[in-house]
Amino acid sequence: MNEPAPIPSGPPRSAFIAIGAIVVFVLFVAWGLSERNAAQPVSGPAPDFTLELFDGFDGGLGASSVTLSDLRGQVVVINFWASWCIPCEEEAPALEATWRAYRDRGVVFLGVDWTDNYGDALAYLRRFNITYANGPDVGTKIGPRYRITGVPETFVIDRNGNVAFFKPLPITQAELSGLLDKLIASP
């Protein structure tokens, strides 16, 4: 007569559930920390976004908003700024001068106004005679996609939609011109 098979003994099911819950919690915390410490993109596909433009600041695009992916095939300069940002004032004339020099050569400039009062932002744009496309980061959604840590920060996107350059400081006309010449020349 066969004896019944012994019942396998082991850790209770609740132990597996508890361990699973701890693993999920640790993964969740790790994901949060990695997101928090992630740096600005310096290569690879540029995060897409749609920028609502300030009235009168469409940079000749003839639209009330612009989506980055629609500009594929052109070199795009994305500049994050704010009217309360003193270093932004330092680079504002250089950005406008570079835009005027390259606007007919397949280059688009997008100014993204970050956490700013609209009235102060418009006054700033008029003060520096800015004419390229500019709009507010409504809901502070674009800045986090580029993981900006402050302003000014400038990204340059190549014709293929990849990040080609990033600078978290005021940019000069000379360095921007050199970079744009190179990107315009590349296929």
Partner: peptide, 11 residues
């Protein structure tokens, strides 16, 4: 007391 916050308070 940053410039940004001063502007926000003005708003």
């Amino acid at each position: 007391q940053t410039s940004a916050c001063v502007q926000w308070k003005a708003q």
